[in-house]
Nucleic acid binder design. Structure first.
Lengths: 248, 248
DNA sequence: GAACAGCCTTGATCAAGATCAAGGAGGGCG
DNA sequence: CGCCCTCCTTGATCTTGATCAAGGCTGTTC
């Protein structure tokens, strides 16, 4: 069966990724209509908690705009970010009632939501959806494993470089379809959130970012705006294999 | 649709988890027959590499017996284990040609394999399979995220305690259907493999295991045989929330 | 049973990153 | 404008786990 992107013209919400990514790849009009009827939008403010671990979560959703994080916390308050939701990412788990992570809006976030029950029903009657979700979940699993390598074996400097590379790449992909040229972007995370992502303290993040700046690997305008004059130079700092990898 | 375990009597390989877990949960005889025809077994010796990152991998498989690991390596050789395959776990990715991790047999391993192409075809025509694989993949993703918390935020001692708890629990589940009583098991991993799992060095693993033994949290017979006199006591050392968690 | 190999333990020292502490930059608001 | 608040930076010191090094245990091979 061949992948086939639908015409976006018959989608009233061009941004809504559940159509574009999770369903439309192999869709027909009927399915779209069903999804169309059950979807609704919610907006969360920056800093707002979308769900706490253990909360009942009666919807699944995709991020339309903004950035949200998934994180887990130990008894004594140490927290580790375990997922970063960018536009088009999927959130929630069909077949599970409870949230298993804290979900927090980092910026203002718009989500396209589907009530869980009807979505599950549709999933059962529409094989493409499970297949597409499987693909997306496998991609997430790959990303999680890349992240495990980072957490377990990289130095602080390599962690920072890796995070910058990930954001830069993802940004470039969103904008241009692929990475290219000198890159420039705003960090969507505070130093503390970066630390939670990387398993470091915020002081260490700050120091390493300063070091990369001092050495000309990156340039900073203000605290958040980053430009990367030479992406390959940055990649050298990540510790990653230069050829393989990056399949996601 | 209700889950429904098949009678294992009409399965010639009672152990083969792709039948039992990935397919049989919602199966009919026809599907079983198709799977039956395309499956074959392979045995790998302890220490043998099943696939290197980048290798062409023309099958998917489930572990029938033995233990295998997934790991990733940085340019300079630092390695991080990113997956542990125990009996009934699934390996390989429908829709992808290449292995993205090194897969290594830790003990002798028997796998029940399906050539990738026919399996993918079957998956397309049999929605249950994608749905079941999605469930399994989501479970793996949860486990990976739990693991990220461990790698990013736990101390060496907590890491060791967590690993022991995971193995103890998994072992008890396999044997009794759920955790219970005083637990006893053989470590399936060398100290070095444990270190790769936990993002530590083998020396640190050795020291922390010794410390837990010295303090009576665990008992050791030889280097590998562990018994846990009081599971709750061990859990206290993991740093985890005692109530929540462990949804997988 | 001696020699060897693989795996593990323990000790001494070192260094990366955490922790503790102080203060700076920018932005919103009275 | 001045105040406060959040976020960030930098310095000094401490701690955890890494690194370097030596040797022990167990099982296998000849």
């Amino acid at each position: 069966m061949e992948m086939q992107e639908i015409e976006l013209t018959h989608v009233d919400c061009g941004n809504c990724p559940i159509r574009h990514r999770a369903v439309c790849a192999r869709c027909d009009a009927t399915e779209l209509d069903q999804l169309e009827e059950m979807k609704y939008y919610r907006t969360f403010e920056a800093g707002q908690t979308i769900a706490w671990t253990g909360d009942k979560l009666d919807f699944v959703a995709t991020v339309v705009s903004g950035i949200a994080t998934l994180s887990q916390t130990l008894e004594d308050g140490r927290t580790q970010m375990v997922g970063l939701l960018l536009p088009s990412d999927f959130m929630g788990r069909p077949g599970r009632e409870m949230a298993t992570y804290d979900v927090t809006a980092t910026t203002e976030v718009v989500m396209c939501c589907f009530r869980r029950r009807p979505f599950e029903d549709l999933m059962r009657s529409t094989p493409h959806i499970a297949q597409r979700l499987l693909e997306m979940t496998l991609d997430e699993l790959d990303a999680a494993r890349e992240w495990m390598l980072l957490l377990g074996r990289k130095t602080a400097r390599e962690k920072i470089a890796s995070l910058l590379a990930i954001i830069a790449r993802r940004n470039a992909t969103l904008k241009f379809g692929q990475a290219q040229g000198p890159m420039e972007f705003d960090l969507p995370l505070t130093r503390e959130a970066m630390a939670d992502y990387l398993g470091l303290t915020l002081e260490t993040v700050s120091r390493q970012v300063s070091a990369l700046k001092r050495e000309g690997v990156i340039e900073l305008a203000g605290k958040r705006h980053v430009s990367v004059p030479d992406f390959d130079r940055l990649m050298l700092e990540t510790g990653d294999d230069t050829d393989g990898g990056m399949l996601v």
